[in-house]
């Protein structure tokens, strides 16, 4: 009986997982499949298998934009941004998690509040700022803010509080380690799984960011992927096939990044929660 019910229970779990799997994968699959269909097919039929318009869509796409260039541009921005968030997110979080100083509460409040500002209108001020800094048409305005990634600080602060005992830091101090060295050699490696997790999300967020690059970058050779996709979309349906192809291409690198980095999360996981 118990064996039967346990098996039934396990079966239910798998059914649930497979149900969620279908929900997650089907629309994603449709995007991939649509990339190989003509625009007219896409709007008129539910396509479930590969079509024959892939080459055509590729040609259309390339006449509108140089997608590989956009790919390289986006990669440059996102990789740099992500590395900065990964290091400085933990760096700043460590300061908030393990030190007491005057104004800490208020300063941390500013960190949190900085996430709450709607970006749509402040983009006008952002443009003027970058104009004054002579950073228009460069990628710095999208890379450097990685140093001030509030959500990463927020997340890493929790992780550091949870997983780094003060005694560990004290011990290192007693041994004469400098503060920076304690962070780099001791704290940083310990919270690496958390950092990697954040890096994945930061990479995706940066990879998909649209309105900032659209407004700051005017040189079309420096356009990023999302701007190019929006360009292909344009007003008219004639470009749907090419648009889906561009989306499909834009998704590939994130999947790769995810696959590489998710190993780190899993390693961390088994170390902590294996029974």
């Amino acid at each position: 009986m118990t064996k039967m019910s346990r098996r039934f229970f396990k079966g239910m779990i798998y059914a649930f997982l497979i149900f969620l799997l279908m929900l997650s994968v089907v629309p994603f699959y449709l995007v991939m499949i649509n990339a190989s269909h003509s625009s007219f097919d896409i709007v008129t039929k539910l396509n479930l298998w590969l079509g024959d318009a892939l080459a055509e869509n590729y040609r259309t796409m390339q006449t509108h934009v140089n997608i590989w260039r956009g790919f390289a541009n986006s990669l440059l921005i996102s990789a740099s941004y992500t590395l900065l968030t990964g290091y400085f997110g933990a760096f700043v979080a460590y300061g908030f998690a393990k030190f007491d100083f005057r104004g800490k509460k208020m300063l941390y409040g500013i960190v949190l509040a900085s996430m709450m500002i709607p970006s749509q209108v402040s983009i006008i001020g952002f443009y003027q700022l970058n104009l004054k800094l002579h950073l228009l048409n460069t990628y710095w305005p999208f890379i450097l803010p990685g140093i001030a990634s509030a959500s990463t600080v927020f997340f890493m602060r929790g992780i550091i509080t949870q997983s780094i005992p003060d005694s560990m830091i004290e011990a290192a101090r007693v041994e004469g380690c400098g503060e920076l060295r304690i962070f780099n050699r001791l704290v940083y490696p310990c919270v690496l799984p958390g950092i990697v997790t954040m890096c994945i999300f930061n990479f995706v967020a940066s990879w998909n960011s649209y309105i900032g690059p659209l407004i700051i970058v005017s040189d079309s050779r420096k356009y990023t992927m999302p701007v190019m996709i929006s360009m292909i979309k344009g007003l008219y349906l004639t470009n749907y096939g090419a648009m889906y192809l561009a989306i499909a291409i834009s998704v590939v690198p994130i999947i790769i990044v995810f696959c590489i980095l998710s190993k780190y999360i899993v390693n961390g996981m088994t170390a902590g929660a294996d029974k």
């Binding site: 983009i123 006008i124 309105i211 659209l214 407004i215 005017s218 929006s230 360009m231 344009g234």
Partner: peptide, 17 residues
């Protein structure tokens, strides 16, 4: 040099500029 700006957001790009 023709820069095609996505139609939907043309005003959003033009105004700050």
């Amino acid at each position: 040099n023709i820069t095609v700006v996505p139609n939907e957001d043309f005003v959003a790009k033009l105004t700050p500029t």
